[in-house]
Each structure stands twice: as structure tokens, then as C-alpha cells.
Amino acid sequence: MTIRFKRPKVRGTVGPAGIATAVLWLSIIVLLPLAALTFASFDEGITGFWDAITAPTAIASLQVTVGVSVVVALINAVMGTLVAWVLVRDEFPGKGIVNALIDLPFALPTIVASIVLLALYGPQSPVDIHLNATRPGLVVALLFVTLPFVVRSVQPVLLEVDRDVEQAAASLGANNWTTFRLVIFPALAPAILGGAGLAFARAIGEYGSVVLIGGNIPRLTQMSSQYIQQQIEIDRPTNAAAVSVVLLAVSFAVLLILRLVSQRSLRRQAASV
């Protein structure tokens, strides 16, 4: 009896060579560095890895990082959607400038944001608001660097929302809130979740914007990125790599869950059409 294996068919426009090039590029840029990081985190064995991630200061930094990042993602989900709505549905003087400012955190070095926030909300605050070395200061800094994610995720979806459905709902007596909740929000939900997930992933690994305004106080305002830097400075690269792997795992898990939820929501919408 002869067993024959079917050769998998490759479909698309670039062909096998293009797919192989893309996979090779991703391997060099992403997979190999991540594999090296994971390998380095186990230099002292599983016991050493466990001791590194369960050290009290490591756990405290992870708690601060995850807690602050969740708050930032939630705020972005609300305010980012509002900003996207204003940019798409409203007309006002200077709209083009505001739209361009949304992408500024992508172009601006994040350490500049930390310097500006320290000057504005530090000990010598000209507005008498002191956020230096506080968790609200971390939140403000991370909100600055994660601003574009939800806005840019929601904008194109909002542009494609069928306005006729909204008008039909209004003609049936639905108020603005009911129309948004039952007609618009289901279409925006996958984009909001995706943008919030990206904001969370960016916040969880951010360093530059929090390095000055945060104060780097262990168990209070020390982010995991600052803890990792500290471990490298005291010549404990294995501990730094171990905590980095935990951050990587948390970010990947959150993005994977949000992707699955978004795909499920899109399938439901397609089935209901």
C-alpha cells in the first residue's frame, strides 16, 4: 500500500518565492531575536527563570505595568473612539491640523514626551499639577504615546458605516444613543478592541515616555521596562531576559485573544447580513 502526500497548494499573487522571502524576513527581524531572548532567559535553568520572575520587585513592577496599561487601554478605547468620531463626522476650523497631530507620537521620540510632561507636571509645574513619581503621571505619559492606535483603527471603519441605516433608525424613533449602541457600535467594536489591544501592548513595553515622569520608584511607579534596565545595569541579564519574556507572553496573549474576539464579531456581522 502506497501512501501519497498531497503537496499543499500555494495561492496568491506573489507565489512561493514571495512567501519564502516574507517568512525569511520575519524570521530574521522577529523570530530569531525572540528565540534568542527566550533562550537567554533560561541560562540558569527553569529554577533560575522562576526565581527571576517571582522576585518581589519583579512582581511589583509587573503589577504596576499591567495595571497602568489596562487603565490606558480603557481610556483610549473611549477617548480614541470619540476623537475618531469628531474627525470623521464633524467639520471645524483646523481639522487638518488636529488630524495630523494624532500621528505626532509616532514621529516624536518618546523621551521628549517625558521631558515635556516633567516640565509641565513636575515639581516646578507652571499649572500647579504635580504628577511626578505618581501612577497618574505614568498614565498621562502612556496616553500620549498610545493616542493614535484606537483613533486610526476606528477612523476607516467609521467612514464605511452605512449612514442610511442610521437614518432609518432615526426615522423609526431611535435617539442618538440608541442608534450608536445598536447600529454603530457593533460595527466599530472589532476596531476598538484591536486598537485598545495595540495600545495595551505598546504601553506594557514603553520606556522612554515614563523614564523621567515616573520616578522609577520600586513597588510604586517602577515599570517593568525600567526594572529590566536596572537588572542590566547591575549585571543580571538573565533576570532582565526572564521578565522580558513575561512581558512578551502577556502582550502576545492579549493580542491573540482580542484578535479571536474581533474575528468572531466579524463573522457574526457577516452572518447577520
Rank of each mutant, 00 (worst) to 15 (best):
T81Y: 08
V112I: 15
G80D: 02
T54N: 10
L82R: 00
S61T: 07
L120D: 09
A113F: 15
I129Q: 07
I97S: 02
A73D: 08
F106P: 03
V98P: 05
V145R: 02
A58R: 01
A60D: 12
V145P: 02
K95M: 11
D128N: 13
Y121D: 04
V154A: 12
L62T: 03
N132R: 01
Q124D: 12
V145A: 11
A84C: 10
G48K: 06
P93V: 15
I97V: 15
N132I: 15
S114Q: 13
T81R: 09
V88S: 03
I97A: 07
P93F: 05
V157T: 15
I59T: 11
D128T: 10
K95F: 04
L101P: 09
I102T: 13
L142E: 03
V139Q: 01
G48R: 11
S114I: 09
V116Y: 01
A170W: 13
E166F: 08
R152D: 13
V165P: 00
S114G: 13
F49C: 05
A107K: 02
I75M: 00
L142N: 04
A169Y: 01
K95H: 12
P105H: 03
A169W: 00
L120R: 02
A119E: 13
L118G: 09
V72R: 01
D103Y: 02
F144D: 06
V154N: 05
Q124Y: 13
L172K: 10
S125A: 06
P156I: 07
L117G: 00
R163P: 04
I53A: 00
A107P: 08
N76D: 08
E160M: 12
A84S: 11
V140S: 00
S153L: 09
G67Y: 05
T110C: 00
P56N: 13
T146E: 08
V154H: 10
L158M: 14
V83L: 15
L120C: 10
P109A: 11
L118D: 02
V66A: 03
V70Y: 07
L62N: 03
S125C: 12
D128A: 14
V151P: 05
H130N: 13
D103V: 08
